[in-house]
Design a protein around this nucleic acid. Structure first.
Lengths: 252, 252
DNA sequence: CCTCCTTATTATCGTGGGTTAGTGCGTAGG
DNA sequence: CCTACGCACTAACCCACGATAATAAGGAGG
């Protein structure tokens, strides 16, 4: 399996051999984490930087009444807390959803990368900004979209993001999360999540059965969700400007 | 009037005289922009960096059906597009809500700052990360809070953010936005926004009359909104202020 | 002072989705 | 093989909130 971190960051920069070597050196032996384990809790001041190499984790906030809002899904190649040192305390928690393989990177290593590898620095910036763009899109989705389109939209996003790290096969992928977790991410009840999932299944658009997602008709799903992948910024960009090849959305 | 940029960034770093001078040099004569004008549109590749010096602007997304979701309020001292160069195209628009005074900063100036002024660089990082934290809090709010608490929560946030740039007086401030814009930010209808605003007024918690907001009972407002300011990271942090507290102290 | 236009306010009615309260199924563990 | 438990799925009822529409109230310009 290709290193998902390099695979993802390559979208933002054309790495040299030296860049690739530096990034590969970062990837020490990952350690396994069981599902539904906290990696970082609200108020923590994490020492090292955490990187997801396999499985799915999430950022979440717990409301005073105990409800949970999932604020981001963390897929292979995603950093959990690249920059928190600057902020001090975590204002949210991070937990695994599925069994995960995680890597802890010493902050000094990150500092070394950002001081000596400009293309990597740029790529890390890019990753941060894409995370932010996704947050904005989620706000728009939760604020404006009906629940069924909200679900469809999320699956479009996850499909593309997983595809860029090589975790899709055809139009299927493994999504080891429960309907409860899906509901918590979308700001709907689990009951309604189930209703809408059944609905999408009935329309032969997509099926989520257990941990397996199969998009039966990607075009229909995109159209239904009114999904536009722009906010993911997956267009390959060479260093001094815009690339032209797209890793992303041309599939069918 | 004190420079709101410096005022805000000072939270993150202890600036030297040289830092302050550099930041003040950035503040050339601002230009005025009428209300409800686009500053940047989706798809643009802005050349310069835009900074709000006075008034209120917003980030927004337009949905396919024409509905608008406001994704952030930009207050004095806030950058509109500090880092977009890395992403390429804007995935959202930015527009003034009230009459604004804006500054355009050449990208080269930003590069100069980040190369030669480590404390400023750190502060800019901090500002970016706080923006991100606010996005997360908004997701949680829209996803989980009832409309009345959502409103109350937003006013708590705006109060504190305006206060840090010296735009509050007692517990009052000027908020030159319409109920429609408020509704667009909170993901509710204008009618419901009005209902809930009336409700808060009736309870003698706060009053929004035209452009003037008066918090009658801040404690009650905070309690009602279940507001905790942690996510704004307003605690002053000194330079190597990577806390000494051990990683434990997990509290609850 | 009057006109026009934007914004605030209120009322009525309909619905998307929440809540509660189940049943059934698949799987891990004994 | 049986039990237990998490998770998927359904059904009934209800309410927070959306849509529509009409009225009032500011405020800029003449």
């Amino acid at each position: 399996m290709f290193n998902p971190l390099i695979r993802k960051l390559s979208i933002a920069s054309d790495f040299t051999e030296s860049d690739n070597r530096a990034l590969n050196d970062v990837i020490v032996e990952p350690h396994s984490v069981a599902p539904k384990q906290d990696i970082i809790r609200t108020g923590d001041r994490p020492e090292n930087v955490h990187l997801v190499m396999d499985g799915i984790a999430c950022r979440y906030k717990i409301m005073p009444n105990g409800d949970r809002q999932i604020v981001a899904f963390l897929l292979p190649g995603d950093f959990c807390d690249l920059h928190v040192a600057i902020l001090g305390e975590m204002d949210h928690g991070i937990a695994t959803l599925s069994p995960c393989k995680m890597i802890e990177i010493p902050r000094t290593t990150i500092n070394d990368l950002t001081e000596n590898y400009p293309r990597i620095t740029r790529a890390l910036w890019w990753a941060t900004l894409v995370d932010e763009a996704i947050l904005r899109e989620w706000i728009a989705g939760i604020g404006q979209r009906m629940a069924d389109k909200r679900i469809a939209h999320l699956f479009c996003e996850l499909y593309l993001r997983l595809k860029t790290v090589g975790q899709t096969e055809d139009h299927s992928f493994t999504l080891p999360i429960t309907q409860q977790e899906l509901a918590d991410a979308l700001g709907i009840s689990i009951v309604h999540a189930n209703r809408m999932l059944m609905d999408l299944r009935t329309r032969n658009i997509m099926v989520m059965r257990g941990k397996h997602v199969k998009i039966l008709n990607y075009d229909a799903l995109k159209a239904f969700a009114e999904f536009s992948p722009d906010y993911l910024h997956l267009e390959r960009r060479s260093e001094n400007g815009n690339g032209q090849r797209s890793v992303s959305d041309k599939g069918r």
